[in-house]
Amino acid sequence: MSERRQQGEDDGATNDVAGCGCSIVLLAIGYFIAARFGNDPANTGKSAIALGGGFCLFLGLMVGRQTWAERRERRRTWVASVMEQRTGVITWRDAELLAVQHMRALGFLDARHTGPGSDGGIDAIATGAVAQVKMHSKPVGRPDIQRLVGAADGGQPVILMFYSFSGFTSTAHTYADERSILLFSFDRAGTVRALNGAATRALRSV
């Protein structure tokens, strides 16, 4: 795990603890107030206090929900060390090198760029894995993923990965899920996000 990734995990864990703690405190306060003052609806003063307790309960639930959502997003996200590259991910070549870097982070240490004209539709390859990268303005469709499957059909089982700048269509998602193909999106800052279950499980091992 890279130093930058480790720092992000540490910061995220700290935020999780703080968020969960705040949520629990708010829920406890809200429950206590609602139970203590909510049993006499005819008393306007007590009703107002009970309403404040209900608000604390609501706020506690919202804090807990936000903490959980942020935790899920972190587990779906990997950030490359592109800060040294002032231009970030601009060209298709940058995108393919980002995919190679990401594959290595996933444990495919011998991942390499295949080079133009020699890949048969595969942009990055490693022992046990191949990847296709698209930096198009439109979502990748099912036919592109099918072509990746055809290009990788060499008799040996490999993990298939697809990286897209603009995401994937719903039919592409369905086909990828049926084939256990890892779908990722990326942006110009070098952030890679898992877009299906297979990809999320892979990112959790980084």
Rank of each mutant, 00 (worst) to 15 (best):
R4C: 07
Q6V: 08
Q7D: 05
G8Q: 12
G8I: 10
E9W: 08
G12Y: 08
A13R: 13
T14W: 14
D16L: 15
V25M: 12
L26A: 09
L27I: 12
F32P: 00
I33G: 07
G38N: 04
D40K: 01
T44R: 12
A48Y: 10
I49D: 01
G52A: 11
F55N: 03
G60F: 08
L61F: 14
M62A: 15
V63R: 14
V63E: 00
R65D: 03
Q66D: 14
W68I: 05
A69S: 14
E70F: 15
R71A: 15
R74S: 09
A80S: 09
T87Q: 10
G88P: 03
D94I: 02
A95Y: 03
E96F: 10
L98D: 00
M103K: 06
M103H: 02
A105Y: 09
A105W: 07
L106G: 08
F108M: 03
A111E: 01
R112A: 11
H113W: 15
H113I: 06
D119R: 14
G120E: 04
D123P: 08
I125V: 12
V130P: 05
Q132W: 06
V133Q: 03
V133F: 09
K134F: 04
H136T: 06
P139N: 04
I145T: 04
I145G: 05
I145N: 04
R147F: 06
R147K: 15
L148S: 03
V149K: 15
Q156I: 15
V158H: 07
L160E: 02
S164F: 00
S166G: 01
F168P: 06
S170Y: 07
A172D: 02
A172N: 01
A176Y: 09
A176R: 12
A176V: 06
A176P: 13
S180H: 12
I181S: 12
S185D: 01
T191Q: 03
A194K: 04
N196V: 06
A199Q: 01
T200Q: 11
T200N: 03
T200M: 08
R204F: 11
S205Q: 10
V206I: 15
